[in-house]
Design a protein around this nucleic acid. Structure first.
Lengths: 212, 212
DNA sequence: GCGGAATCGGAGTGATCACTCCGGATTGGG
DNA sequence: CCCAATCCGGAGTGATCACTCCGATTCCGC
């Protein structure tokens, strides 16, 4: 977040011009749409055209394409984190957790950039991008903890495992985007695995270990 | 289009020169290594250098980069299909199925091209590439059927769901490549989900999966 | 060997991309 | 209203990529 409203942080503070602020927002919005539609390989010029601006303007606000991508990712992830925070007060912790998980995967099926953003956030490519997605991790961890306390999610999985599953499910959803039925059934398998009792109870015959 | 010249010199066509055959194999081998190491965005020149050949030679054998990629994918998938066939005679159908699944995911963690190949095979981008991975699908379907008959895998999942899960798990593995522990635990969750009883037999917390 | 045909090699081609530069338009304090 | 500070626009730059072309080289039937 941290939208520099005026006087960007130093002495001799000068207000930021209104057109600059407006155009920055337009670039971000256009970039989000273009990357979602054509993938992260879309050219910067496409973004500029969609925003109705010149490429020079895009590069002034985001000095490199990587910076632009990161800004888009951060915006997306922050929005997801906010959504997750809103679910913390839900009545059913299990439904809140699984619902959020499914919602993220559903979005990934149509928005290319999201799965890339999640992958970036889940793996922390660099030290500098470690901040990226931190809010989402915190919010998701809180949802997970509540669901585990309520017995809706097995207690032997941690946030790293959940993130890995979320990244995998999102990327898989992106590649089978068309068939929502298959996607839903595959996701149901993962959810059943998350509800299952910790390993150790052999599911040889009879009722597989459910709760204990 | 004329009939493609094949290695079989016995049929009416002309014999293929020995160096051409040898170089074709070298290109494939080099491409597999380079794409595994640097991803599918690696340049054709890198492949040629690794093979100790000129780019012209690479393009004569594979007229486009996409064709080269597809050849690498097909080779990989065919190898996996052969491996799966070998497991059909294993004593424990469940162990055979889950072992193969885990093996594929483990390979994907270190070989970039594999997850891309699986994604391609799982979604059938074009009609012409529908053949790609057909053998793998057949072999995987056979393993799945045997495991389901033995009661090791729930009966309400089909090959499309398995392929989706395999693609997702492989791509997730590629992005958390370093930490094998997390990867193993996340995979264990999926496996528990595949062993679980079909949804609906849950007694207590009735948070249903998701309808998307 | 020998001759002709197929193959090899790598400089060259055209397209595309991220990114820069600077003249001209726009903004906002005095 | 004025004018300097600031921002915009898009042609230009250099790098890289997939792919082509053709003389040099190698292979193989005879």
């Amino acid at each position: 977040m941290t939208a520099p409203r005026r006087a960007s942080a130093t002495d001799g503070g000068r207000p930021v011009r209104a057109d600059a602020l407006r155009n920055r927002a337009r670039v971000l919005e256009a970039a989000e749409a273009v990357f979602a539609e054509h993938g992260t390989t879309a050219s910067t010029e496409q973004v500029a055209r969609r925003a109705g601006l010149g490429v020079g303007t895009v590069f002034r606000h985001f000095p490199t394409k990587e910076a632009l991508l990161e800004a888009v990712f951060v915006a997306r992830l922050d929005r997801l984190a906010t959504e997750a925070d809103g679910l913390m007060s839900a009545d059913d912790p299990g439904a809140a957790f699984f619902g959020f998980f499914a919602r993220v995967v559903g979005h990934a099926a149509t928005k290319n950039a999201l799965s890339a953003a999640l992958a970036e956030a889940g793996v922390d490519v660099r030290e500098s991008t470690a901040e990226t997605g931190r809010e989402l991790k915190r919010a998701l961890g809180a949802l997970l903890g509540r669901a585990q306390e309520a017995g809706a999610v097995r207690p032997d999985v941690g946030l790293p495992e959940i993130l890995t599953l979320l990244v995998g499910a999102s990327q898989a959803a992106e590649h089978v985007g068309g068939d929502a039925g298959v996607r839903a059934r595959a996701l149901a398998v993962v959810f059943d695995g998350l509800r299952a009792a910790p390993a150790g109870s052999e599911p040889g015959s009879g009722s597989p270990g459910v709760r204990g």
